[in-house]
Nucleic acid binder design. Structure first.
Length: 561
RNA sequence: GUCCCCGUAGCUCAGAUGGAUAGAGCGACUGCCUCCUAAGCAGUAGGCCCCAGGUUCGAGUCCUGGCGGGGACGCCA
């Protein structure tokens, strides 16, 4: 498109000036008097060429003649080059967007390579909470952004179905089981106290009766474990489905053991000579790879720490062909990053493997007060409760609209608000409004199909309110590219809100009440087609943006009340 | 004590490899529906970008040192 043509011309011009290739920006200035596009390239080159920026800008301008679609170039401020585009050039992007349709915004940066995104990875010890929700939304959106950037994405969910936490769960279930059968037993202090544990016990009684009443041994406990894990897994599955998140693969920790990957990892680490025995435990010299201290792999009681299966697990990712792996985790797992990477480096994997996106925690506020409204989980708010309360789209969007590394305050009042104060509805409503234009055109018997729009004379889009929208739409592909590279879905939220705002503004200024001459559904077929083309292009961008984030793009909005 | 993240409008937060006059939403105030959905739009008010140095043509952005908040520092996960 036009931006690429100007970029290319700028590169050629800098080479011609003897400056070689330079890094510079070419973007849309805030102030429209600074043109449609502006570049800082002259200032960026000033140091290297040892000449004043405005002088360099003058030389560049002299070489930048005859770029198709550029009306004129001005030198401004300390040495900016401001490009003013012809009306037809701006309109041309409308056709480009309409032509690409559902593919508008996609790029091939990934070249079809495989990448794994591991996220949620909740242990089956309870219902999913809000932290998992943020992670589900984040992981899925990052995965989606990578798909839009040409990667082949694998979504994976890892879970510990063995080990200390699961044992505590099993013991807790047994305690509730016995309580329900009339025994005076307490749930251990380090056990799971939530009501859902009693629900599991009750379900188990319904299924197997009093079978485990007199068995305080491992057989009963193993039955409890299997039953509880299966039940909680399927419950998590149901909650994720309600949240519109799906995975390609679920990887249980027990598989690492049953396939011998943990023991083979121990052998391989021993072969490196980086292990040693101390205090009866087996240690790995992770400090040799930047970890703050060495770590225990096998405890003095002979059982492995979590660290070891974690290394084994990441080796399987590599061996399954995933050399690009992104782990989305809560920042409370921060301390494991260096240690796992160190373990993998000991086995000759690259130092940055895997990549981590760590996110901060979530709190919910209602009426300015922090709330916890879980009835079942006891100590935290569940994802299922939140989704039932505000809907999947709103929940997803709110989880995504802040940078991962920033703490997230979930404003329940705003989430429940169905007006445009709620950013989700603002974006969805802007989309619905554009769809409505087409429906009305249809009702009036006006043809507004793809060919009509593609053949419209978009140079008729001369009003500033129209041109501003088009320029905003033109930035969508670069925005997606930046969001994917930065693993930053919140940039898409920002962009969509801004775009929706501009669409609404355009829609209002061109409202028949206010400016009949700017109205979209005018009698003049040429003008109408051009404006519907703009509406169609904007609709595509909002639709594609919402789709990337995993949200619906409704054609109609229906209010609850 | 060490490491990581955060500090921007009254509140919640954006600010791409350093660029022109620092933005949005909420809240406050003022206007705008005979007409394509007002679930909207236009406008006003609101800022020592935590502090102090440094780097340079230029710093909210980069560096150093403080201050404040959160998290992590286990033979827990």
């Amino acid at each position: 498109m036009l931006t690429e043509r100007i970029s290319e011309a700028l590169r050629e011009a800098t080479v011609a000036l003897g400056a070689g290739s330079a890094r510079f920006r070419l973007d849309r200035p805030r102030d429209t008097s600074h043109g449609d596009l502006a570049t800082n390239v002259a200032m960026a080159l000033a140091g290297r060429l040892g000449r004043p920026p405005r002088e360099i800008a003058g030389d560049l301008k002299a070489r930048l003649t005859g770029i198709e679609g550029v009306e004129r170039i001005e030198i401004a401020g300390p040495g900016f080059l401001n490009f003013f585009l012809e009306a037809g050039a701006v309109g041309g992007t409308v056709q480009a967007i309409l032509g690409r349709g559902v593919r508008y915004g996609r790029n091939e940066d990934g070249g079809g390579q495989r990448v794994m995104v591991e996220f949620v990875s909740a242990n089956p010890t309870g219902p999913l909470h809000l932290g998992h929700g943020r992670q589900a939304a984040l992981g899925d959106a990052i995965a989606s952004l990578l798909e839009w950037s040409g990667w082949t994405v694998h979504r994976e969910f890892y879970f510990n179905d063995a080990g200390g936490q699961i044992r505590r769960l099993s013991v807790s279930v047994r305690a509730r089981y016995l309580q329900l059968l009339g025994h005076d037993v307490a749930v251990p202090e380090d056990g799971y106290q939530g009501e859902y544990v009693s629900e599991i016990a009750a379900a188990l009684i319904e299924k197997d009766g009093r079978r485990y009443e007199d068995d305080d041994g491992d057989i009963a406990l193993e039955a409890m474990r299997r039953y509880a894990v299966a039940l909680l897994r399927s419950e998590q599955e149901r909650d994720l489905a309600a949240f519109n998140v799906r995975f390609d693969e679920y990887y249980p920790e027990t598989r690492l053991y049953s396939e011998g990957l943990v023991s083979s990892t121990i052998s391989k680490l021993r072969e490196t000579g980086l292990t040693y025995r101390e205090d009866g435990a087996l240690w790995l010299r992770t400090s040799a790879f930047g970890d703050q201290k060495d770590r225990v792999m096998v405890k003095s009681d002979g059982s492995p720490t979590y660290f070891l299966p974690d290394v084994a697990y990441h080796m399987t990712k590599w061996e399954r062909g995933f050399h690009d792996v992104i782990n989305v985790q809560g920042s409370d797992h921060h301390s494991t990053v260096d240690r796992v990477r160190a373990g993998l480096q000991a086995l000759d994997r690259p130092s940055g493997y895997p990549e981590y996106v760590l996110h901060q925690m979530v709190t919910v506020e209602h009426g300015g007060e922090e709330v916890r409204f879980s009835k079942r989980a006891g100590s935290y708010t569940t994802l299922a409760d939140l989704v039932a309360e505000v809907g999947a789209d709103v929940a997803r969007y709110f989880f995504l609209m802040r940078r991962p590394e920033a703490h997230l305050t979930f404003d329940l009042d705003l989430a429940l608000d169905q007006s445009d104060r709620n950013p989700v509805y603002k974006v969805q409503y802007a989309h619905a409004r554009l769809c409505r234009l087409f429906k009305l055109a249809d009702e009036r018997g006006w043809v507004a199909d793809h060919d009509t729009l593609m053949n419209a004379d978009t140079s008729l889009l001369t009003d500033p309110s129209e041109r501003e929208v088009v320029k905003q739409l033109a930035e969508f592909p670069a925005l997606l590219r930046r969001a994917a590279a930065g693993r930053a879905p919140h940039l898409v939220c920002d962009y969509l809100e801004k775009t929706a705002g501009m669409v609404n503004s355009w829609y209002q200024t061109s409202h028949p009440t206010r400016n009949p001459e700017l109205s979209t559904l005018v009698e003049d077929p040429g003008l109408r087609a051009a404006r519907l083309g703009l509406a169609g292009a904007a609709r595509i961008v909002l639709d594609n943006g919402l789709t990337v984030l995993g949200l619906a793009a409704p054609e109609r909005m229906v209010r609850d009340d």
